[in-house]
Design a protein around this nucleic acid. Structure first.
Lengths: 123, 123
DNA sequence: TCGGTATATGAGCATATATTCAAATAAAAT
DNA sequence: ATTTTATTTGAATATATGCTCATATACCGA
């Protein structure tokens, strides 16, 4: 591999080395991929979208809106919690969930724009 | 489940029904989760970050920068291609990859901001 | 044409993920 | 106290994913 580096291909050896040196910290990459992984599941996206339309929702609300079992919703909420995408508030027997910060929804919308653009405005 | 809907929990029945009705189209959700899935792997994020630092890179460049095998890189590039995150240009034996549209990098950066915020500015 | 280089692909393996089911915990109502 | 409601958790299963290895395709040069 190294024998080719900056041999045949590289018209810009310095640039490549600079890019290689300038790689993101491994911990940041790990966290970032975990963040996007949290957004990579249809159920979790539907939860996030539902949360984006109101201030907060308890688990039961979410189950009703998505028509899914409390167990599967709770499992997914745990993922969102662990990835720091949502925050919780406990009241009596209920636990209310809401989006953690603006970046969550901004990222969601940014992705949505990309997807809608790929549809060519058909939707 | 339905017996409880808008019974014990719902102080805002109308809102919940509205949220339920207002759910995103299933095809959009599917595409959106696929988009974020493409961003949910460390290798693919590193590829995207490398591509963001220059105009385009051939497969071999990427292998050198990430110090990974052509096969694994090619597999991951296929995912990025299928998810419409990158575009390609063929020249002689080489295939040059570049980011498809601004939303890809904007989404990446939005996620990065979220992650760095969680770190509390420690990085 | 032949050999070498660049990229892509398919099978296989190890690991991860989403859902379901059963059970556990916590708080409220009776 | 006991039952009901709300949420969480662990085990199990089916499916998906990332990498490696071997092979295939495409293009260039001698």
């Amino acid at each position: 591999m190294d024998k080719h580096f900056c041999d045949i291909h590289c018209t810009d050896e310095a640039d490549l080395l600079k890019i290689k040196k300038n790689s993101l910290d491994e911990e940041v990459i790990t966290k970032l991929s975990a963040f996007f992984k949290a957004l990579s599941d249809p159920t979790r996206l539907r939860i996030i979208y539902a949360l984006s339309q109101t201030e907060e929702l308890c688990v039961y609300h979410i189950c009703c809106i998505l028509e899914m079992s409390p167990s599967s919703i709770s499992h997914q909420l745990r993922v969102l919690r662990q990835m720091d995408l949502v925050k919780t508030r406990k009241e009596a027997q209920s636990v209310y969930y809401s989006l953690k910060d603006k970046h969550v929804l901004q990222t969601f919308n940014q992705g949505l724009e990309h997807v809608l653009e790929q549809f060519g405005g058909q939707i």
